[in-house]
Design a protein around this nucleic acid. Structure first.
Length: 492
RNA sequence: GCCCCCAUCGUCUAGUGGCCUAGGACAUCGCCCUCUCACGGCGAAGACAGGGGUUCAAAUCCCCUUGGGGGUACCA
């Protein structure tokens, strides 16, 4: 059997959408599973909407997800160029061939005329299709149109009878009636650019693509493409149409559902492994017990047979949970690496981190690891470990630090910390327990005020860890500062 | 309008005629752990869209209805 060759062919009209990313992933997994080739092709024939910047964004997004391509931009390959905008002569060549063999013709109908006829067809309850009136134009008629200044398009002469079967690896055989479902569609626009349904065939055929794995939304166009393959004598590839990704309201996932671009997820602090794992589960499943898959496992286990047919709702909560799982699996060093840019950007860490500061950060991260869902969360959770100007959550202050004895309790802890030989649980807990008896309170009544005083919030790692990390000097200063603040605001 | 696809807990799914009083995961709720929040552990609630067939037997096969999605462009 020949080498598997698949491709991902995004059009650079914006960010890489999660749907596109999932398509890229399935192609990539399929290629890697079969030891095949993953081709990246940029479909930039829509000059009005395509930009170079968008191309770069897509390339960056794929790199972030670690879906490396074997052929394509920056990689080269024997079947280039990999930008459609650089392949115009090829499309022209094959369109000419269709013209020569009588499987294509020039059409002079204007968009207005076409639209009007379409409306009439809808009104008559028929399926909308080009009526073929330019199929057999005489030279005189043609010249008359040219004289009018009409610029022709090229239409494909589709089959006039029978049916076109799409053998789909996910959906099985899907049959389309040639007469009503495949009309003489445009393959070359009047502006000299090929249309998608034509260019995609020429490209996939010339690039020797063996399996076309793409979104469900392309299924209806497939019979048109198959007819082009056949008219041109190309081998028809295998198709696999994967289900769409929907928003919570079951409509197609789009920007209005919130973050949908891979770039956004990257910026919010999602790990590539978590994104990939989650995306893989959108429309694919392995068995009844596993949800966490490493990349090698995904490659080993992925198959089109197990791709589901129904659309999947994108569940951000599950993605978040999964990201947390991957964060917890990281080594401390690995966690440090992913957190570093976020901390630097937020001003928690300098550009150059000294060995001592890194060591301290590693200890902080050890405490925060189980508390992170997104890498970006580290900024808020770690702030008070780095800055003395952390903010007090006044609602919490009101609730916790206005109780009777607050001043005495904080004063007691202040003294205990001052005298302790070492700020750890072993040395402090006995002292705190003494305090409990003295004030007639429970551990929580002592620890919570301390926590709020030191962090400004009622949420933090275990108090002894916080005390140890902060160190005597900062702890004493923060307790003093908190007491001053309370008095200033006349809360105690 | 016409055509195509799809249909199991709120969500992602397992299930390919008997193993299903339908399994797992996220989310939800309760309990445990506990100095808070996480993590972790235990448990609860929660689905075969509806109707007809086929069969000894149907979540699984067929048909219809309903619902959702997509296509129908000189967008990709």
């Amino acid at each position: 059997m020949s080498t598997v060759r698949v491709r991902f062919a995004p059009s650079p009209t914006g960010d890489l959408h999660v749907g596109g990313a999932r398509t890229a992933l399935f192609n990539w997994l399929f290629a890697r599973h079969h030891g095949g080739v993953f081709v990246l092709r940029i479909e930039d024939t829509d000059a009005a909407r395509s930009t170079e910047a968008a191309t770069q964004v897509i390339l960056d997004a794929l790199e972030y997800l670690k879906l490396e391509w074997d052929e394509g931009p920056g990689k080269g390959g024997d079947f280039g160029p990999y930008y459609q905008s650089q392949r115009l002569d090829l499309y022209k060549q094959y369109a000419d061939r269709l013209l020569e063999i009588g499987r294509a013709y020039h059409c002079y109908c204007t968009p207005e005329e076409l639209d009007q006829r379409r409306q009439e067809q809808i009104k008559a309850g028929q399926s909308t299709r080009y009526d073929g009136r330019c199929r057999h134009l005489t030279d005189e008629e043609r010249q008359a149109f040219e004289a009018e200044g009409r610029v022709p398009v090229i239409r494909f002469k589709s089959l006039e009878e029978g049916e076109t079967k799409v053998e789909d690896l996910v959906r099985g055989t899907v049959i389309f009636d040639n007469v009503t479902q495949v009309d003489d569609f445009v393959i070359f626009k009047s502006d000299g650019m090929p249309t998608y349904n034509f260019a995609v065939v020429v490209d996939d055929a010339l690039m020797k693509i063996t399996h076309v794995i793409r979104g469900d939304d392309h299924l209806s166009n497939t019979p048109k493409q198959i007819q082009i393959y056949e008219a041109l004598g190309f081998a028809v590839p295998k198709f696999a149409h994967i289900p769409m990704i929907l928003g919570p309201d079951k409509s197609l996932l789009s920007k209005r559902h919130g973050a949908t671009s891979v770039t956004q997820f990257y910026e919010e602090g999602y790990l590539a492994e978590a994104m990939v794992n989650y995306l893989a589960l959108l429309g694919w499943g392995y068995d009844d017990s596993q949800t966490i898959f490493s990349i090698p496992e995904l490659i080993e286990k992925f198959s089109l047979e197990r791709v589901s047919k129904n659309p999947a709702v994108f569940d951000k909560q599950k993605l978040e949970w999964m990201n947390g799982v991957y964060i917890r699996e990281l080594t401390l060093e690995g966690l440090y690496e992913v957190c570093l840019p976020f901390c630097q950007k937020a001003g928690l860490l300098p550009e150059e981190v000294s060995p001592e500061l890194k060591d301290y950060t590693l200890r902080v991260l050890e405490q925060l690891q189980s508390r992170l869902k997104l890498v970006a969360d580290v900024v808020d959770l770690a702030r008070y470990f780095y800055r003395d100007d952390y903010e007090y959550n006044m609602e919490v202050v009101q609730k916790i630090l206005t109780k009777p004895q607050t001043e005495e309790i904080l004063g007691y802890v202040h003294a205990a910390v001052k005298d302790a030989p070492k700020l750890d649980e072993e040395h402090l807990k006995p002292q705190f327990q003494e305090g409990l008896k003295k004030f007639g309170i429970k551990m929580g009544d002592l620890i919570q005020p301390v926590r709020v005083a030191l962090t400004g919030t009622n949420v933090s790692p275990g108090i002894y860890d916080v005390l140890e990390l902060l160190g005597r000097e900062r702890v004493l200063a923060r307790i003093e500062h908190t007491l001053e603040m309370l008095k200033e605001k006349e809360l105690i």
